[in-house]
Simulated scan of single mutants.
Amino acid sequence: MTAPIVFRDFNFKLLVVEKLMYEDETLVPAFDLSEHMRAHGVDDLARHVRENGLEYTVLAEARAHFEQLEIPAELLASVEELMFDGGLQVFAECAPVWDGEDDLFDVRGLDDLDLLPNLKVFSGVDALEYMLPGATEVLTARGIETED
Results as ranks from 00 to 15, higher is better:
P72A: 12
R47D: 12
E25G: 12
H40I: 12
D32W: 13
P29E: 15
K120P: 02
L139D: 07
R50T: 11
R142Q: 14
E147K: 12
D112Y: 04
A46Y: 08
H36D: 15
V16H: 00
P72N: 07
G53R: 02
R47Y: 14
F84D: 03
V6R: 06
G100M: 13
D85F: 13
Y22S: 00
E80W: 07
V125Q: 10
E101V: 10
A141W: 04
L59V: 06
L15G: 00
D44C: 09
V58T: 06
D148W: 13
L20D: 00
H36M: 14
D102I: 04
E147H: 12
E51A: 05
A62D: 01
L119S: 06
L119D: 05
E61N: 07
G86M: 07
L69Y: 01
I71R: 08
D44V: 11
V58H: 11
G143A: 02
A60Q: 09
D112P: 08
D32G: 12
E145A: 09
E80N: 01
L20G: 02
L33G: 09
G87C: 13
R47A: 10
F122L: 03
L33A: 06
T2A: 07
L15F: 00
V97P: 04
L76E: 03
D32M: 06
A60C: 01
L115H: 05
G109E: 15
L128T: 12
H36L: 05
M131L: 05
I144T: 03
K13P: 01
G134W: 03
G53S: 01
G41R: 11
V97Q: 08
